[in-house]
Design a protein around this nucleic acid. Structure first.
Ligand SMILES: [Zn+2]
Ligand SMILES: [Zn+2]
Ligand SMILES: [Zn+2]
Ligand SMILES: [Zn+2]
Lengths: 158, 158
DNA sequence: ACTTGCATTGTTATATGATAACATCACTTA
DNA sequence: TAAGTGATGTTATCATATAACAATGCAAGT
């Protein structure tokens, strides 16, 4: 799990690696990491928080890289579709993936005080829910798992 | 788990019980299950599907029980706050609780074909995620767990 | 009955999140 | 060059949710 995000870490490396991996995966799969898409990913990578589409759009606007909602939604759709970003349903917001390229079932730890979001990885068919789904004949294709609470730093501060 | 919702069952009993339990809990806790709130709960209980706030509002309108968004959002807030309904984050929609009154951590199985939603119950601090959160010092207060896939009926039909 | 306080409801307006539709541009390939 | 495809620009609109304030209803205490 990437709970390092709750503590000090080499964040410049986070960002650089995120972009580098995305670029490598795109090159390998024949996808086009266009300037807009790359910039949106950079924006998401700039912090370990989820950002709303319109917050991203505001930044793009300031840089002359797009003025209308579809611009940012298209970029976000691309990033989410290919696993470079995730949508946090609870927040209607988006965050860069910390394990891009590799297929995985993400889960998120969301601090209600500082809004930091850590990405964990789970077995989508595992646990109690997987057992019950199996017993009921329900086929799980995708999971949304988001835990809300307090990160260690904010808990200690309280 | 209430996966009976994927098959034939005595649904009239579902509805009657939902209302009866809500009324009993409200009486016991000094809450007011007003006509509007009761009616919204009845609407949610009418099917094992999540309904958008505006879909509920459309029904209320047809019955002269409210014309503006705040009417339905207030009723939904009340029902969610006191555990008579849940919000499905993935769908921006609401569903009646199948275990009202008792505190619980719900999880949902959402069929992408027929839109039926079953409510399961999980241990919020259990499983891989709970372990990882504990290891990271993250305190889980609430969980959003939504599995998307195919219910047995729709899978057999495919 | 009166009044005081508080929860609920009515209503207007607006904020926030997301997509449809269509024109234009750019890059690839025949 | 021409056609085909994917990406971008742009307008308009839809969908979801809340702020703010007025009016009403209800209960407790006098
Ligand atoms: Zn980092
Ligand atoms: Zn925090
Ligand atoms: Zn039923
Ligand atoms: Zn189904």
């Amino acid at each position: 799990m990437d709970t390092k995000v709750f503590a000090h870490h080499d964040h410049a490396a986070c960002q650089a690696e995120g972009i580098a991996v995305a670029a490598a995966v795109c090159a390998q799969k024949g996808l086009r990491l266009t300037p807009q898409r790359r910039r949106v990913l950079e924006i998401l990578l700039s912090r370990h928080r989820a950002m709303g589409a319109y917050a991203v759009l505001a930044i793009l606007r300031g840089e002359g890289m797009g003025n209308q909602p579809p611009v940012v939604y298209r970029a976000l759709d691309f990033l989410v579709k290919h696993g470079f970003a995730h949508k946090i349903e609870r927040l209607n917001a988006f965050i860069a993936c910390t394990r891009p390229g590799a297929p995985h079932a993400p889960a998120f730890l969301i601090c209600r005080t500082c809004d930091t979001v850590a990405e964990a990885h789970i077995d989508p068919g595992g646990g109690t829910l997987g057992d019950e789904a199996g017993a009921a004949g329900f086929t799980i294709e995708r999971t949304v798992v988001e835990a809300l609470g307090l990160c260690p730093k904010c808990r200690d501060a309280a």
